[in-house]
Design a protein around this nucleic acid. Structure first.
Lengths: 155, 155
DNA sequence: ACCCTGATTGGCAGATTCTGCCAATTCAAT
DNA sequence: ATTGAATTGGCAGAATCTGCCAATCAGGGT
């Protein structure tokens, strides 16, 4: 990966629907080598995909909650069971395995506090092996930066 | 917004580089009304944009940290100053204003723990008005779902 | 049941873009 | 300088985009 690849990645993070011609112009190549580089980045896995950004509030899901979860025990079985259960919950947008006192960390979306309460009571707490759940509510999103800093390998 | 719009949004969340023809076929329309709907969703702001998903580890930024921040006072001035400062930090990928004991919640990326420490010491703590900082480290991402549940207005 | 109106759709066609192939160029190492 | 591998630019047929127009559809009022 070199400077041109980095430019490609930066440009596509800001607008994944750029045409190959536009992209080529931005990074200073002609279209065909530019397309080849994009394909290579895709094949290598660095470019994992392209996704539309949705305005959650306008879409109808204005509530964002961060949830810390602790398991009763960290056996292999309990971990796998929990992670599998989480995959099936549509409201869970992201899930991280954490260091420290909390085991998992989730970002959950919902249309209202009522719905979120129902989600916790009827879905989350039904998962086996959960010791505790702690919810933190977001007022709003202050920043969402679709752009990573340059990787250390570039400098 | 109706069922077709929802299909469009779902499809574009999974692959934002679908051609209009492919998208039209998926949602069961011919290309031209499909394109019109996409434009309308863009104009309305529901479709905020399209971004490439990057594999952070392959890219060279394997460390993800969630940071809770408390301000000394919640005056209008302090809040604005903090939010402005945050906008300029490339390492901060997301920032939320929170309810509860913590004021802000950040997702920060870094290439190593050393770099992260430097980031905290040389950048974060230099921002005026911060009372406390608490870092939680992620081992890895267990789930990343590029798909929202159907909005309540559809059911 | 009928008509009327506004919204939505499908098809068409010129303009644009994509993308595989090949020759030319660049660059690094000897 | 010379060689060879990697990368590039240009080309052209195929595919796609996208604005326009007529046809269709939904549903409200009489």
């Amino acid at each position: 990966m070199n400077k041109i690849d980095w430019k490609i990645i930066t440009a596509l993070q800001q607008n994944a629907r750029l045409t190959n011609q536009e992209l080529a112009q931005i990074v200073g190549l002609s279209p065909s080598p530019c397309l080849r580089r994009v394909r290579k980045l895709e094949d290598s896995g660095i470019l994992r995909g392209y996704q539309a950004q949705i305005d959650q509030t306008l879409y109808g899901l204005p509530v964002t909650v961060f949830v810390s979860i602790k398991l009763e025990r960290q056996t292999d079985h309990a971990i796998r069971a929990f992670e599998q259960a989480i995959q099936d919950l549509d409201e869970v947008q992201e899930c991280y395995l954490m260091t420290g006192p909390r085991d998992y960390f989730l970002r959950v979306v919902s249309d209202s506090l009522q719905s979120y309460e129902r989600f916790v009571r009827e879905r989350l707490t039904r998962i086996e092996g959960i010791a505790s759940i702690e919810s933190s509510f977001a007022f709003n999103q202050v920043k969402q930066k679709p752009r990573l800093p340059p990787p250390p390998t570039l400098e």
